[in-house]
Design a protein around this nucleic acid. Structure first.
Length: 209
DNA sequence: GGAGCGATGTCCT
DNA sequence: GGACATCGCTCCG
């Protein structure tokens, strides 16, 4: 059985572009459990994606793509598997990944991670004391961008399907046991649409308001 | 532990 | 000029 024991250690690989070339709700559900990797000053920061939201294209009143293509949201209309980072409320960044084929808008908002590697560095980047409650590190879209030092200037337009990218998404073949679907959080328009996906019973999903 | 609110930059009308 | 896919701090029970 040693042969099985060896092969049970699955290969970790970057999630390919074809994964993102589909509808936002499909991609969102399947992104749960994947790893977000950030190479920061030679250190590897990593977290498991435990909460996401799907944003559709020009038909979705809550989506940035709703108003049509502009300089700010151009990434959404480009190829899939690209980071869309925007600045919100004068203080925070939010990380999305574009999906749908090139020319069609759509994205996934990464809302929460379960921190896996580099927790002390994340705490420092969040300006929290050493050994904080880990839930404070990456539970929330603004928080996780701060914890991984993700900014619009550095990361908007970055290819997350490139294995050499400082920001990428990998698959270690973890499968969530149960997934919950709820309405999206913090939006005015189309607030009733069930497009928020989260891993059931995971302690690192963001608190809803 | 929950509701209320202020901070603050960027984009679009 | 106003909206905004947020967060952390108050104040109150």
């Amino acid at each position: 059985m040693s042969r099985i024991a060896r092969s049970s250690r699955k290969v970790v690989s970057v999630v390919p572009r074809s994964f993102y070339e589909r509808a936002p709700d499909v991609v969102a559900r399947e992104l749960l459990g994947k790893l977000l990797i950030r190479e920061w000053n030679g250190e590897r920061l990593a977290g498991r994606i435990v909460e996401v939201e799907a944003y559709f294209g020009t038909d979705d009143p809550a989506a940035h793509a709703y108003i049509g293509r502009t300089t700010r949201n151009a990434v959404l209309f480009g190829p899939p598997g690209v980071a869309y980072v925007y600045f919100i409320y004068g203080m925070y960044y939010c990380l999305n990944v574009s999906c749908e084929p090139d020319g069609h808008a759509g994205c996934i908002l990464i809302r929460a991670l379960e921190p896996i590697e580099g927790l002390e560095t994340m705490a420092a980047l969040r300006k929290l004391p050493s050994h904080p409650k880990p839930q404070l590190l990456t539970s929330g879209p603004g928080r996780l961008c701060q914890a991984l030092d993700i900014t619009r200037a550095a990361h908007n337009g970055l290819d997350v399907t490139d294995g050499s990218s400082c920001l990428r998404i990998e698959n270690d073949h973890y499968h969530p046991e149960a997934i919950l679907v709820t309405p999206r959080i913090g939006i005015r328009h189309a607030a009733e649409l069930p497009a928020r996906f989260l891993i059931d019973k995971n302690k690192f999903v963001s608190a809803s308001r």
